[in-house]
């Protein structure tokens, strides 16, 4: 009887997840191998056309472009986020929870609103331009909004709190005696950081990087709002297949490619984490 207990507790949730997540996702997987009907419906005969179309130079180009943008966003967010996490971990222990709370607070406010805030800032009549004018910069400024840079800034802004959180965990867990040992053995501050702290906290950075990358490459709101209409990323492409182009099988194939990229990266990250950590850090018991 004791062994059956967990099962009936878990059943309702597992049924829900199977019905409204697993089956729909399998459906999408199946959909990717069907043909698009003439009037936008679905014809149930098996084909690789949709998968092949993903690798068509036109669409592969969008994939690469999305990956480059997501990669830049993830890189910037990782560097800035790590620095912030490091700075928080360097503050007095009693202050750290509050600082961390403040760092993740924006993450919990509405995504659309946070993105909209950047429209206000980057607008042709926006704050940044006004400030530049007020400072006496009278030249015609290049448009800040509806650019690749705007999209990257938006992505970094939205996901930075997550990276800070991911990087803070291993930094806070580091035993103070480890860095002291490095100093004691003759290493200066920078060498200690490069050879001890950084390698030991790589898993946090990897987690942060992968999540920002994955969330960015499939993003559709930020490119739509900050990139303007003319700017396509995979998310927008998927959106279009379902809501305007009405090519569901191709949209499904694109989503599967997205999932494949995500799973590949997560596997890589797990692998990197296992390699880098080399075991748990023992806490000092004094």
């Amino acid at each position: 009887m004791a062994d059956r207990k967990p099962l009936y507790l878990m059943t309702p949730a597992l049924v829900w997840l199977s019905l409204f997540m697993v089956i729909p996702c399998l459906l999408i997987l199946a959909l990717a191998f069907f043909r698009r009907g003439i009037y936008g419906g679905i014809e149930y005969d098996f084909t690789f056309e949709n998968i092949a179309l993903v690798f068509d130079p036109l669409y592969a180009g969008i994939f690469i472009k999305s990956a480059i943008i997501a990669g830049q966003a993830a890189l910037i967010a990782s560097v800035v986020g790590y620095a912030a996490a490091y700075a928080i971990a360097a503050m007095p222990k009693s202050r750290q929870p509050l600082l961390l709370f403040l760092a993740i607070l924006p993450f919990w406010s509405n995504y659309l609103v946070r993105t909209y805030a950047w429209i206000v800032l980057l607008n042709r009549e926006g704050l940044i331009v006004s400030v530049a004018r007020a400072l006496g910069y009278n030249q015609e400024l290049p448009s800040l909004l509806y650019t690749e840079t705007a999209v990257i800034v938006g992505l970094v802004y939205n996901y930075l709190p997550f990276v800070i959180l991911a990087c803070y965990a291993p930094l806070a867990r580091m035993n103070a005696e480890i860095t002291e040992a490095s100093r004691d053995l003759g290493a200066g501050g920078w060498t200690t950081f490069r050879r001890i702290t950084l390698p030991m906290t790589v898993p946090g950075i990897a987690t942060g990087f992968v999540f920002v990358f994955v969330l960015s490459i499939g993003n559709f709101v930020t490119p739509a709002l900050l990139g303007g209409g003319q700017f396509q990323m995979i998310g927008n492409l998927v959106y279009a297949q379902f809501l305007t182009a009405n090519d569901w099988p191709f949209g499904a194939a694109l989503s599967m490619a997205l999932i494949a990229i995500m799973m590949g990266l997560l596997t890589l990250q797990t692998f990197a984490t296992e390699r880098a950590s080399g075991g748990r850090v023992r806490d000092a018991d004094g």
Partner: peptide
Amino acid sequence: APMIIPDIVLAIALLSF
């Protein structure tokens, strides 16, 4: 899974379903 699947994928999956 629900926390890491990109929203857009879950969205279209449910729409199709």
